[in-house]
Design a protein around this nucleic acid. Sequence first.
DNA 1: ATCCAATGTGTTCTATAGACACAAACCTAT
DNA 2: ATAGGTTTGTGTCTATAGAACACATTGGAT
Lengths: 237, 237
Amino acid sequence: MRANHPNLKTAAVEKSSHREYFNIAVSVDCVIFGYEDKELRVLLIKSDLEEFSGLFSLLGDLVRPDEDLDAASYRVLKERTGLDDVFLQQVHTFGAVKRHPSGRVVSTAYYSLVNIHNHKLNIDCHDLHWHPVQTIKKLAFDHKQILDTCLNMLREQIMDHPVVHNLLPEKFSLRALQELYEAILGTSLDRRNFRKKIALKSWLSELDELEEDVTHRPGKLHKFKTKALKISAPKKN
Amino acid sequence: MRANHPNLKTAAVEKSSHREYFNIAVSVDCVIFGYEDKELRVLLIKSDLEEFSGLFSLLGDLVRPDEDLDAASYRVLKERTGLDDVFLQQVHTFGAVKRHPSGRVVSTAYYSLVNIHNHKLNIDCHDLHWHPVQTIKKLAFDHKQILDTCLNMLREQIMDHPVVHNLLPEKFSLRALQELYEAILGTSLDRRNFRKKIALKSWLSELDELEEDVTHRPGKLHKFKTKALKISAPKKN
DNA sequence: ATCCAATGTGTTCTATAGACACAAACCTAT
DNA sequence: ATAGGTTTGTGTCTATAGAACACATTGGAT
């Protein structure tokens, strides 16, 4: 244990004498959620590390020296999905010494919500795919834990913030919205209570259009009034 | 923009070819809250950086290569206060390129709650002091923003988790508890509603002892049943 | 015309939040 | 001992939100 407590200046400025502090790499990992076939999905890539062969991992990259942390997660997202007008939120930073087998990497996790169908997918490299969240048992590194943490955050936030608009088409029925909530929460919801609760939030505008191509009575279409890209105040109501 | 997306292995293992990614320093900053004279306080240190002379800053340090991120914040806390059985919680990671004038530093903020009177303060270096939170207008670097973020987190969490036991003596009156909540929240609370709400949480045991040395009718003393050091599930009820 | 499947709607019950008042207890000063 | 001061301890009313729950209506399909 050092007798004195060097502050940031000491170590950050006099790099030569404290070189060892830069042996920590900084990365971001993005939990990119999508929604398809009434299932919540997450964008994964086949891990190419020897130790984790066969496993998938989240999308991440090292943060560049001239790049803000948030910008790095935006970059990863844009490189992979071509989208840049999406919801993106920092969740937690994972910094265990041994979390990465190849060296010390501190990684900040973000989650985002994108419309699987909207984006001009850069899934040319077909190691990428949208995997149903429910069926994920194991991921490379500590990525399963990161996924779980982000999923919990998502589940908390959808009740207070209209973030899920990113996962739906412009116009949607209340039933489609409820199915999305059920997919995210992993539970079933009472239809009447759900509609009441959503109505109270005043997030939606009711349109004069009806569903089409349904084999039953069509419901009215709705759309979100707001398009929040970030949760400004991470508070409860 | 790179054509391919190097993954962590590429950059973290082959250090020689990606040395630049290690020019980011990783640090922790601790927002250490205390409570004295019915005021919420935070432990600050006089910044010795030229540009910020006269300003105070939070307690932080670089993360060591062989040290977990959480462990680094525990270490900072222990070095400064001598305490290691305290509540400590990660809040957010700040990673703007220009947040630190001396170089690129990504810093993860933690907040903790300690009893100002309990600890054998390592405040021998008397640049340290407990500053009332209310009167803090400006801090070095982005530390004011970090403080605000942590204070918001604290305010959210005290309603759902019995974390404030760290700020009180073993035995306390309900009035003392309410004054603490009012100091943290920056508002005044209705006494009856406060007692009712606290009773509902079942966090406290009522003792058979009374306050002493008060100039009025003494209240019953209470103590916390649990001593949570970490918030296990960062969920709402 | 009938069947089918989903829409659209309201009440009851329970729990929690907020506003609000008064009697009892202990201390102090006389 | 008595009276005055200050705080404790307690309960009701109202409003709001969550959870459980049923039925008539609509449009499509046959």
